[in-house]
Design a protein around this nucleic acid. Structure first.
Lengths: 143, 143
DNA sequence: CAGCATCCAGTCAGATACTG
DNA sequence: CAGTATCTGACTGGATGCTG
């Protein structure tokens, strides 16, 4: 990227946004917010400003590399703000911007749906796997 | 994967679902629906049953490998149903299940938000990049 | 038409080590 | 505390060729 000028992007932005098209910027944004870490980080920021360490411990499974990377991307896209307090131990707070707050309910809906429909999906997955391994190849995936 | 037995998964499913935990199945489901192709495929199925070829041409940017793979995953998770009509040229229709229909509004919200907030994100991204390259001050993080 | 198998380049993400 | 830098294995996703 960065090869396109602002004028070119403006031109693209004026066109109807259809995420089905690969060259449409909406597709790229869709890719961005479809990132699993983005979902978790934004959710973690739902309760207000958080420090870097707080996010790290709350999400736990994320590596500091991915946390930083996700945070940087979100900051770049104007979804979160980064505030540095130059105290002796440097303190950095991340907070959702108005734009990020607008995304929040959407993200929350996704996360909520996932936690809400686990049983059905798990059951369907189980049924699917069982049905497949009955015939054809006997004892293929048993362990 | 596939190393966990159904019993083990059942046990995990009984625990409280917290997507922040890596070992929680809700996290895996979150990963699944956070997939960019899933978003597009589910959106494409919003208008009712579609044939394989229809999906391929509608999404266009997707490869047949990714389309098939995404479809298989969605079918396995019980989000879409696969109907084979054994005519001379085999006809296969995909359709959202009730579970998939429940996910639809969530997906639609994500896709809608992406298409709706393009300008703001694009502007923020542009401002972010510009600010970094113009500074060139050794005091900032712009190296 | 619908789909699978294989090869392979590119990207992602974790572990590790170091800085202000 | 809050990062940055790098190396590397794992996974993603595209292109191609073949089957029913």
């Amino acid at each position: 990227m960065a090869t396109r000028t602002a004028a070119q992007r403006r031109e693209q932005a004026r066109a109807a946004y259809d995420a089905y098209l690969a060259d449409c910027p909406a597709r790229q944004l869709l890719d961005r917010i479809s990132d699993k870490w983005v979902t978790l980080v934004v959710s973690a920021l739902a309760g207000g400003p958080r420090r870097y360490g707080q996010l790290a411990s709350q999400i736990a499974s994320i590596s500091q590399k991915m946390l930083t990377q996700t945070l940087r991307n979100l900051e770049r896209d104007g979804l979160v703000s980064r505030t540095v307090t130059p105290t002796v131990p440097v303190r950095v707070d991340y907070e959702l911007t108005p734009l990020g707050l607008g995304l929040l309910p959407v993200i929350a809906a996704v996360k909520g749906w996932a936690e809400d429909n686990m049983d059905d999906v798990l059951a369907a997955r189980d049924a699917y796997d069982t049905g497949k391994s009955v015939e054809t190849v006997p004892g293929s995936r048993a362990s």
